[in-house]
Computed example of a mutant assay.
Amino acid sequence: MSSTLVVAVDGPSGSGKSSTARGVATRLSLAYLDTGAMYRAVTWALLQRGTDLGDPDAIARDAADVQIVSGTDPGAPTITADGTDVSQAIREDDVTAHVSPVAAVPQVRTLLVELQRRVIASADQGIVVEGRDIGSTVAPDAAVKVYLVADAEARAARRAAERGGADQEATAASLAARDRIDSTRATSPLTRADGAVQIDGTHLSLEEVVDAVAALVEEARTA
């Protein structure tokens, strides 16, 4: 890994990782990478190809040919799959329903972790990276590691609001299922990395969470 300043923000779905990571990157003039979007982009591409997403071997084979490009501007993050802008498409229900089994395939994780490390190494000004295995696998030597959590009700309310007022109970069930898959997969499971500072954002505003992470970054910069 390079000497790039890396801020790793991990945590479960709906914990506020994206808003927090983008807020910190914007405030501190750092680059930003949403690794979850990369897994979603691969999932979108495989759905377009008609890949059998119940077959890990088929997923591994077809994912090897998908070209993912992630923009790192926190003010306007972009992502393309095979040259197509999929920034909106990857948030659709079909992708959401299939991303966990795709992300659990070891070959997919190997491909994307390598890509993520290349993006990190190219960010001369430093980078905030969000995901589920950043501090544990992608950038274990990150200067700052944060594990962002929130209680189940708060997470479901946030995610339902993001989806235009979706059913909160159904959203909570979906998040719980995603947590089980992410936390129990054999390769790079969702976990609090060694040295990560846990921040519970249940009763904090976004600004307060950004303040807390930014303070950790400034502390690391002056250490």
Rank of each mutant, 00 (worst) to 15 (best):
L47D: 01
T43F: 03
A58N: 06
R40P: 01
Q67S: 15
G131L: 11
Q48D: 09
Y39T: 00
V95H: 00
I68G: 01
Q116R: 11
S122Y: 05
R40T: 01
T78G: 15
A121R: 13
P74E: 10
R117N: 13
T72I: 15
Q67G: 11
A60I: 08
T96D: 03
G75I: 15
V105L: 09
A123S: 15
V99S: 01
T137D: 13
V102N: 00
L47A: 04
V119R: 11
E92P: 00
Q67K: 14
V69I: 13
V138L: 11
T84D: 13
V128E: 07
S122H: 05
R118C: 08
D65Y: 07
R118M: 07
I134V: 15
A45K: 01
V108E: 03
V102M: 03
D57P: 05
R117Y: 13
H98C: 03
T84Y: 09
L53M: 13
I134G: 03
G135T: 08
V95L: 03
Q67M: 10
G71E: 09
D65L: 10
R61Q: 11
T72V: 15
R117W: 13
I59V: 15
L111M: 10
A81S: 10
V102R: 00
P56C: 09
A97W: 01
D133A: 13
P140N: 08
A76Y: 04
A103D: 01
D124T: 14
A139F: 05
V66Y: 01
G54L: 06
S136G: 11
D94F: 02
I134H: 04
T84M: 13
T72C: 15
R118Y: 09
V128M: 07
S100C: 12
R118L: 11
E130T: 13
A89H: 04
A121C: 06
A81Y: 05
I134N: 02
D57E: 14
T72W: 12
L47C: 03
D94E: 14
G131K: 07
P74N: 13
S122F: 06
T72E: 11
L111D: 07
T80H: 08
E92C: 03
D94A: 14
T72H: 14
V129I: 14
V102E: 00
E130N: 14
P140I: 11
V66L: 11
A41Y: 00
A45I: 02
A103W: 00
S136K: 02
T110N: 08
L111W: 03
G126D: 12
Q48V: 02
V138T: 15
T110R: 09
A58G: 07
D85C: 10
A76W: 03
T80R: 10
V119H: 10
A60E: 07
A58C: 09
G135R: 00
